[in-house]
Amino acid sequence: MISEYLTKDNIILGAEVADWKEAIKKSGSILEANDLIEAEYIDAMIEMVKDKGAYIVITPGLALPHARPEKGAKENGLSLLTLKEPVNFGHSKNDPVKVVISFCAADDSSHTQMLSELAEFLKDKKNVNYIKEVDSKKELLAYFKSYDEGGESNEDSNSMRSRSGQ
């Protein structure tokens, strides 16, 4: 259930950051505040991009920073950060990034279910576009809840904002 992983404590909307590093820091600080990681994990997420590149921008406008479990991950968890102004991560096609979803995994396998549910959710561009635009956490939490209850066919006409031009 997306609403189990992304709760009011794991979400920051409309943050202002100077660059991708600050975006990862801010996003990672949510994981830290929820006691899901040690502080070093945040640096490891940044190192990962420096080292391996911006491939974590898996789809246009969305980055999925993470580090290896042994870099200070305590439990499986997600955080969601959206940016007021998008920043470039250095990906030739999927920049600029508006949505940063960091995750931490306690080990190599137990996070599969969590990422599987996240992938299912993100596969629907409508959901990604919604997250890019939403500015009310309350609305977003209701959207997650309604998605979880309604599954893929969820139309969510009440809280869905106009997607004209998408």
Partner: peptide, 15 residues
């Protein structure tokens, strides 16, 4: 495949 082998590659695997 991806850099760490546990995030992006897992999502790609599912798709």
């Amino acid at each position: 495949v991806c850099g760490a082998g546990q995030g992006s590659s897992l999502i790609l695997k599912m798709n």
